[in-house]
Simulated scan of single mutants.
Amino acid sequence: MGNMATEITAFLLTISGWILVSSTLPTDYWKVSSVDGTVITTATFWSNLWKTCVTDSTGVSNCKDFPSMLALDAYIQVCRGLMIASVCLGFFGAILALVGMKCTKIGGSETTKARLTVLSGFHFILNGLCSLIACSIYAHRITTDFFDPLFVAQKFELGAALFIGWAGSVLCILGGLIFCLSLSEGFSMRAEYSYRGAASFVTARNKHSRTANSLQKEAGGPSRQFGRNAYV
């Protein structure tokens, strides 16, 4: 029962993290224009992995998609690939977790379900690592330009999507580790049970052999005495 509760907790953590990571893809604010050192702000610039937008003082936004994928900066392309891979890994990890958990009635034997559970744990760990690396690369580019004194273009600050992605990554990695640890605990309990079963079997066998030897001695004593008296 304890192992089942652990798996359910890990599943809730990983699904919550996967939802947070997936929500960062359509989120607009990956980076927002900084107002540091600006006296009058007439427009706010913000962008994500797919488009760049500007909002004027009246609240009207004008967005423009990136015209060419090949003309994009390398870090945006890398972040796109990592985030898409992260979402895919989380999707397959959720399916494997549903099949491999003990509270479900599908998946086959306990050994097969255990293998599916640990495989889903590795999927979620990779899911969290991919999104964590993507958000960190994007944030590193923003902070590098912000603190560069020779960078004279518009400077940006970290957007809300990065913090959501980091939080989802931590939940996915934590849930994946719990999946793997719950499996190792299950194997240790099985090994301990097998050892106790083998020890009890050996003890019972020794007792049976001692009982048989004692009965044989009791039965053999009079027979040997009877044999000696028979020749007298």
Results as ranks from 00 to 15, higher is better:
Gly93His: 04
Gln216Arg: 15
Lys207Arg: 14
Met1Ala: 13
Ser214Lys: 14
Trp166Thr: 05
Asp56Gly: 12
Tyr29Cys: 06
Tyr29Asp: 10
Thr144Phe: 07
Phe163Pro: 00
Phe179Trp: 04
Asn3Val: 10
Phe146Lys: 13
Arg228Met: 13
Gly168Ser: 05
Thr55Glu: 11
Thr42Glu: 03
Tyr231Asp: 14
Ser182Gln: 02
Ile173Glu: 00
Ile125Gly: 00
Trp18Gln: 13
Asn48Trp: 01
Thr55Met: 09
Ala139Lys: 09
Ala139Val: 06
Ala134Cys: 08
Ser33Ile: 06
Ser188His: 07
Ala85Lys: 07
Thr117Val: 04
Ser34Cys: 06
Phe124Glu: 00
Ser169Asn: 06
His208Pro: 01
Ser200Pro: 01
Thr41Ala: 10
Ile106Cys: 13
Ser169Arg: 03
Ser188Thr: 10
Asp148Glu: 04
Pro222Ile: 08
Gly220Glu: 15
Leu177Cys: 12
Leu70Lys: 09
Val99Ser: 08
Leu82Pro: 01
Ala219Thr: 10
Leu89Trp: 05
Asn213Trp: 10
Asn62Gly: 01
Phe124Arg: 04
Leu119Ser: 12
Phe151Asn: 13
Gly165Asn: 04
Ser109Gln: 03
Ile142His: 08
Gly93Ala: 06
Asn213Val: 11
Pro67Asp: 08
Met83Phe: 07
Lys64Tyr: 02
Gly197His: 09
Met101Lys: 03
Tyr138Pro: 03
Phe201Ala: 15
Ala167Lys: 00
Ser200His: 13
Lys217Glu: 12
Thr211Asp: 08
Trp30Thr: 05
Pro149Lys: 03
Arg190Ser: 07
Gly175Pro: 00
Leu98Gly: 09
Ser182Ile: 00
Asp36Asn: 12
Val32Asp: 03
Lys207Trp: 04
Gly37Asp: 06
Met69Glu: 11
Gly100Gln: 05
Cys79Thr: 11
Thr117Gly: 11
Thr14Glu: 05
Leu215Cys: 04
Glu185Ser: 06
Phe91Asp: 02
Arg115Asp: 02
Trp46Ile: 00
Ile76Glu: 06
Ser23Ala: 15
Asn3Ser: 15
Ala139Asp: 04
Ile142Asp: 02
Lys31Gln: 15
